[in-house]
């Protein structure tokens, strides 16, 4: 009986693994097929021979998007995490009257539908002359990233014992010194979570990118949608592009999955 249950469990897990990997299978084998032998109808069949040709074809169109997304996601996540660290520290350890009132207001910013700020946001960015390049997009990602980074750091610092802070205070350290010398040195795990979360969401964002950038500054998602979103694009090129565009976030996920997971929990307010 017990072995039966166990076999059943592994069987079920196997079926689920198949479901989750099925698109990846189609993606991989199509992208690796020789373009001449690709057909949508035969998408599940293994290739006769492997070829990197598809990647060679689509890479020139994606390269710029890749560079742009990197130039966008790195500063956006760094600045957002830094500000989030400061906010999180103050809101948990250096509270001011009203902090408990302000925090939920900040949190709400995480959940708003971006459609509801789209019109004012682009009118504002436009009058500030921040549309077209990456500057404006970076700023927007920083600002709309603040709620989640604040939340991540606030939860993290909340776990830090008050005594450490009090001790620093007794030593006469001011807020900034306590922050830099006591809080920040122990914060790398929270930074990892915040940076990964921010990097992934900036990399994967489409709506802000398509609204705020012109072609030469298109982030990867916009470039990808333009290459592979057209209806007449060869199937194999669509798959190769989708794969390439997902490599960085997948790498982050594979290498730093633990922190990624914690970011997810934070996203559900389960810090």
């Amino acid at each position: 009986m017990k072995t039966l249950v166990r076999t059943g469990r592994y069987l079920a897990l196997l079926v689920l693994v198949c479901f989750f990997l099925m698109p990846v299978y189609a993606l991989l084998i199509t992208a690796l097929k020789d373009p001449a032998s690709v057909s949508v109808v035969r998408m599940w069949e293994l290739p006769q021979s492997f070829s990197m040709e598809n990647f060679r074809i689509v890479w020139p169109d994606l390269r710029e998007g890749f560079v742009n997304s990197a130039l966008l996601a790195v500063p956006a996540s760094l600045v957002s995490a830094m500000l989030g660290a400061a906010n999180g520290f103050v809101l948990s350890k250096w509270r001011f009257p009203g902090a408990d009132f302000v925090f939920p207001l900040i949190l709400f910013g995480m959940f708003i539908p971006y459609q509801a700020i789209l019109i004012p946001m682009y009118r504002t960015m436009q009058s500030a002359n921040l549309v077209g390049g990456l500057d404006g997009l970076i700023i927007v990602h920083i600002i709309y990233g603040l709620p989640i980074t604040t939340l991540i750091f606030r939860s993290y610092f909340a776990g830090l014992s008050d005594e450490v802070i009090e001790a620093a205070k007794v030593d006469g350290a001011g807020m900034l010194r306590t922050f830099f010398h006591v809080a920040l040195p122990i914060a790398p795990p929270a930074f990892a979570v915040a940076l990964i979360w921010q990097f992934t969401s900036a990399w994967n964002d489409f709506l802000f990118g398509v609204l705020l950038t012109s072609r030469e500054f298109w982030p990867i998602t916009v470039a990808l949608n333009n290459i592979a979103g057209g209806q007449t694009v060869p199937f194999n090129q669509a798959m190769a592009s989708a794969l390439l565009a997902s490599v960085p976030t997948l790498l982050v996920y594979v290498l730093l999955g633990r922190f990624f997971m914690r970011g997810l929990m934070a996203g559900a307010l389960k810090g």
Binding site: L13, L16, V17, F20, L21, M22, P23, A26, L27, V40, M43, T200, W203, N204, D205, F206, T221, L224, N225, A228, G229, F235, A238, M239, S241, A242, A245, S246, T249, L250, V252, Y253, V254, G257, F260, M261, L264
Partner: peptide, 24 residues
């Protein structure tokens, strides 16, 4: 391993997800 397999689609953009699934 199982957890990673079940979670990895979270790391992929909706655009890429859509492009794959459009063909599926």
């Amino acid at each position: 391993f199982f957890r990673s397999v079940f979670l990895f689609p979270m790391a992929i953009s909706f655009i890429a997800t859509a492009i794959i699934w459009r063909w599926l």
